[in-house]
Every structure is written in structure tokens, then in C-alpha cells.
């Protein structure tokens, strides 16, 4: 059974990628080991999702990411849209002031683009 048929059988998988550029070290694991080949590196080496509809949400990129910089199928605060190039024009990252983020369950680096409350 092809991956497409399998995905159709169990319903469309949640394949939205979230990406935290502040944590990414541009090692290239996610791009190299994506079984569908839908992650491509942009000019800086950050991953970008090329054909989101082909994603099977297997989660291999997330598990092989040593820096927890990419997630599949769910969103965490501070993530940015994967379909845009990282370091895009709209979002500029400010360094958070020490002690400014109240929550202890979120790293300040992840909150950098758009601080939001969790729960």
C-alpha cells in the first residue's frame, strides 16, 4: 500500500510542521532523512516544507532532530510557519530580557518571535 493510500485510509494526518529557528543548528538531519523528501534546506540551511500535502506525519524529522527544533502535527508556542523561509522578512527575533518570560515550561528562546501564554 502506498503511503498516500495509507494516509487516506486512516484519515488525513496532521502534518503541520512547527519550527523554532532559535534552537536549530542547521545540522541537516531532518532534510536528509525525510522519507518523502519534502523538507528542503533554504539558503541558510534551515529546513522548509516544500509539499506539505505529501507529508505522512511519520515524525522522523522530529525524532532525529537533536535540538528539538521541529515538531510535526502539533504546535508549541513560539513556533514559526514552516511554509515560509526561515529568517523571513516578516518576523524578526528579539532577544528576550532575562526573567521576562514568566512561564517555566517554555524556554525564552522559543518564545522569541511571538510570546504567547501556554494553557
Amino acid at each position: 500500500m502506498s503511503a498516500g493510500k495509507a494516509a487516506k485510509k486512516r484519515g488525513k494526518p496532521k502534518s503541520e510542521h512547527s519550527f523554532y529557528p532559535a534552537w536549530c543548528k542547521r545540522c541537516g538531519n531532518c532534510v536528509a532523512f525525510c522519507p518523502r523528501g519534502i523538507l528542503v534546506a533554504d539558503e541558510w540551511g534551515y529546513p522548509r516544507q516544500q509539499n506539505p500535502e505529501r507529508c505522512t506525519a511519520c515524525g522522523l524529522c522530529e525524532m532525529l532532530c537533536p535540538d528539538f527544533a521541529i515538531t510535526v502535527g502539533y504546535e508549541k508556542p513560539g513556533a514559526m510557519d514552516m511554509t515560509q523561509a526561515a529568517g523571513g522578512e516578516s518576523k524578526d527575533f528579539e532577544t528576550p530580557k532575562p526573567g521576562s518570560s514568566g512561564s517555566s515550561s517554555i524556554s525564552p528562546e522559543r518564545l522569541a518571535p511571538a510570546p504567547r501564554e501556554e494553557k
Partner: peptide
């Protein structure tokens, strides 16, 4: 939920080091 978020992230290991994968 299991990470210590008051530690500096990204962690100290080299880009692509397997220790991060093992940690997860």
C-alpha cells in the same frame, strides 16, 4: 514537558550530535 527550560537552549553539543537524539 521534561526539559529544563531555565537551562540555555540550544544545548552545548555540536550540530547533528547524536546525544540530542538520545535525550529525546
Amino acid at each position: 514537558d521534561w526539559l529544563r527550560h531555565d537551562k540555555k537552549f540550544p544545548h552545548v553539543w555540536c550540530p547533528g550530535c547524536g546525544l540530542g537524539i538520545l535525550l529525546g
